[in-house]
Computed example of a mutant assay.
Amino acid sequence: MQDAALKTPAVAAPRSEARHGVLHFLQALRAISLRELLKFSQQYGRLVSALVRPLLWLAVFAAGFRNVFGIAIVEPYDTYIPYEVYIVPGLIGMVLLFNGMQSSLALVYDREMGLMRLLLTAPLPRPWILFCKLFATALLSVLQALAFVAVALLIGTELPVFTWHAFPALLAIVAGAFMLGALGLLLSVHIKQLENFAGTMNFVIFPMYFISTALYPLWKLQEAGADWVYQLARLNPFTHAIEWIRFAIHGKDPGIAPWVVLGCAVAFFVLACWGYDPQRGFGQLAKRGGGGPP
């Protein structure tokens, strides 16, 4: 009995430490997420700008192009649809893409001002700190995307969102937000100064968006003879994120799109964690003041 009594505290101690460690991890996730949400709630123009861009496409360009782009009866549609219905998934992707890229700009700013350096020196694994930042970015992206969908419904866009299809579509939006947020995290490794973000816009955001199925279907590109654009659009992970959302909204099988999106999300995040390691990363952040000791 005495031996059992002596062994009990030794067994309970690791369990208590493990429980405390899990709580510490969750506290970090909660603190970083709440910080980003609070900062976002004080930036009213950020939400407005995030909604104006896709709503401009929806209200103006879709009306002008309604008779220019004839959307044939192809998957995932069962009948002819107006152009504004087709581009809504692409505009949701636009919200996710721009917020994910804007997060990389915020990370560069935090790194220059020292906030990111302080976070990276916290007594937590570096990948977990970066995951917390990624989680906060994805959360903001999803909230902005849902706000856009609500406004799109208010202006009369017909979307089957009040069915069970909404749940797979929400899952697709969340996965797309994580993938694009992880891409923004990876880009922040290489962007040394805020002035370089304009190059990111020109060489990453715009090509990724326009060489995709966000604004026109792949068969239109192939029909027009733009084979190289067609092939690039097929390889673009943003295309698969859009197609997953589009097929999920209409309750159809998205094929390999979920696997491409999830695989790219994991790959981007792993590469970002590698890049934020000051001992071996791509950017060697420690040499330019972007990372603290491991």
Rank of each mutant, 00 (worst) to 15 (best):
I81V: 15
I81F: 14
P82N: 09
Y83Q: 13
E84C: 09
V85T: 15
I87A: 02
V88M: 03
P89A: 12
P89V: 12
G90P: 01
G90D: 06
G90K: 05
L91V: 10
L91A: 03
L91E: 05
V95N: 04
L96E: 07
L96S: 01
F98M: 06
F98V: 10
F98H: 05
N99Q: 15
G100T: 11
Q102D: 04
Q102Y: 06
S103Q: 04
S103G: 12
L105T: 14
A106N: 15
A106Y: 02
L107K: 08
V108E: 05
V108A: 10
Y109G: 10
Y109I: 09
D110R: 03
R111H: 10
R111T: 03
R111D: 09
E112F: 08
E112T: 10
L115R: 14
M116P: 00
R117K: 02
R117E: 15
R117W: 14
L118R: 13
L119G: 08
L119S: 04
L119C: 01
L120G: 00
T121E: 11
L124D: 06
P125K: 11
P127Y: 12
P127R: 11
L130P: 08
C132T: 08
K133V: 07
L134M: 05
F135S: 07
F135V: 13
A136N: 04
T137R: 01
A138Q: 05
A138I: 00
A138H: 07
L139W: 00
L140N: 04
S141G: 14
S141H: 10
V142N: 05
V142Q: 02
Q144H: 03
A145N: 03
A147F: 13
F148E: 04
F148T: 11
A150G: 11
A150L: 15
A150W: 14
V151W: 09
A152C: 11
L154C: 15
L154M: 13
E158G: 07
E158N: 07
P160Y: 13
P160A: 11
P160K: 09
V161C: 14
V161H: 08
F162V: 09
F162K: 02
T163K: 09
W164E: 10
W164I: 08
W164T: 06
A166C: 15
A166G: 08
P168N: 07
A169R: 01
A169Y: 05
L171S: 08
V174Q: 00
V174H: 14
G176L: 03
A177W: 02
A177E: 03
F178T: 05
G181C: 10
A182E: 02
G184N: 14
L185D: 00
